[in-house]
Design a protein around this nucleic acid. Structure first.
Lengths: 234, 234
DNA sequence: TCAAAAGTGTTCAAGTTACACCCATGT
DNA sequence: ACATGGGTGTAACTTGAACACTTTTGA
């Protein structure tokens, strides 16, 4: 079937395999986590890797990433963006494979993450990532760097938290991302002054006797302000 | 030859064509410019496009970009970085082609830019970019956005200026990038306070009777400071 | 009643903005 | 001598950093 759709142009060019790989981060109040899988195919079967797939002839590269994320996590709308192209000639001994990597952020509270048992997956602490196949360790390092850079200027942190979260929770997330402590008072002041959080009546009592008020990220308001030149920065 | 290196794994996957495209910016004291070319091959022969090429089986994707840039400009070490992957199924009616785009910055004072006559190339003002083939207009828009974002936090502006440049020249560049005027005194104060420019004895008399002192970007010093956490921001 | 985390305000330093005048030189 | 762009300083304001005490409540 694919053979029937031969290029009528570009006859001199050589096709290669194109894959996508997804670097998936999560956050569980202890720290940042990375989702890894035991590879199912040769070469390197049963070694740890990020998830990936070849791009099918009739799907866009982005669509392949979305497909794979849903296949492995059961989640349909995950925050995801392109990380970069990994195109060294010999990066995969199995064939010439060019990979487009994506990085994705997941809320660990989502009930229906069905990864772990079904796909021999495991959430790894960022400080104890095992050796991965191919250039996947490099991809992870690049993804982390992107997360660091990006979290500072874009409100992507909320993608890692439940819809309702407390300020201390949010702060813990940023502390995990930046790997350093932040001042409680200044953090709260800054994030609240942006006027992009809606305070709820509820409290989260899971981590203190007093309980911490829950907030919700107001994406709409943020979008409007961003249009007008507002710069998120934390 | 390529045929002899058939994949021993991944037999079920379908190879596709992979191309690279380069979005090239320049700056000539009047404003930002974009380098475009008349396409040499069908389909869309003779229409305007950014330059590109298919990735050869024995070269990395990055290497393909470097090769193409040199082929068309004669310049070997151009500032260049990946822009993103363009992977829609039908983006190229000639075949299924996935393209990795790069964005590149060129010093227009380099003597040996041999593009223009040899390859039917033209430097376009950013405000009068013609319709381009395929998704190239989108690529250009994305590249511009990246330039905006990146120029603010990384010293990439210097890649667009001659090795020796005056402060007013540098300011004109940033004004061109941001599309707004900046205060002379504050701009100078800020950039000089970073301590990454070396003042030279020479003056540039090309744009005023008095002449403006020339400076050089001290890349080494910047690198050292960046290691220690210094944040370029302008 | 106490332990443990949540919540709150002020002061000081640093950085950013706004703004006006003199300088050097070629014509 | 004058027109043109280059160069400089200061005051008001805004922002970020540092820092300590009170509140709530379950055990």
């Amino acid at each position: 079937m694919a053979a029937s759709k031969k290029p009528v142009f570009y006859a001199e060019a050589t096709p290669v395999l194109v894959a996508i790989d997804c670097i998936i981060f999560g956050f569980d109040n202890e720290g940042l986590k990375l989702l890894l899988f035991k590879r199912k195919v040769e070469p390197f079967r049963n070694e740890w890797s990020v998830i990936g797939s070849f791009v099918n002839p009739l799907e866009s590269v982005d669509a392949a990433a979305v497909r794979v994320l849903e296949e492995y996590t059961g989640l349909k709308s995950i925050f995801m963006e392109p990380l970069g192209c990994y195109g060294e000639v010999d990066r995969d001994p199995g064939a010439r494979v060019i990979s487009q990597a994506y990085f994705a952020l997941i809320r660990l509270d989502e009930e229906d993450i069905r990864t772990v048992e079904t796909h021999q997956a495991h959430w790894f602490d960022l400080h104890s990532i095992p050796p991965l196949i191919l250039d996947h360790n490099r991809m992870v390092a690049d993804a982390l760097e992107k997360l660091h850079r990006k979290a500072r200027y874009r409100p992507i942190g909320f993608e890692l938290l439940p819809q309702k979260f407390s300020i201390p929770q949010l702060q813990a997330l940023y502390e995990a991302i930046y790997q350093r402590e932040l001042d409680r008072r200044n953090f709260r002041k800054k994030i609240l002054s942006m006027n992009i959080l809606d305070k709820l009546e509820e409290k989260d009592k899971s981590s203190s006797r007093k309980g911490a008020y829950l907030y919700r990220f107001n994406k709409k308001r943020y979008g409007e302000m961003a249009e007008k030149g507002f710069d998120f920065q934390i």
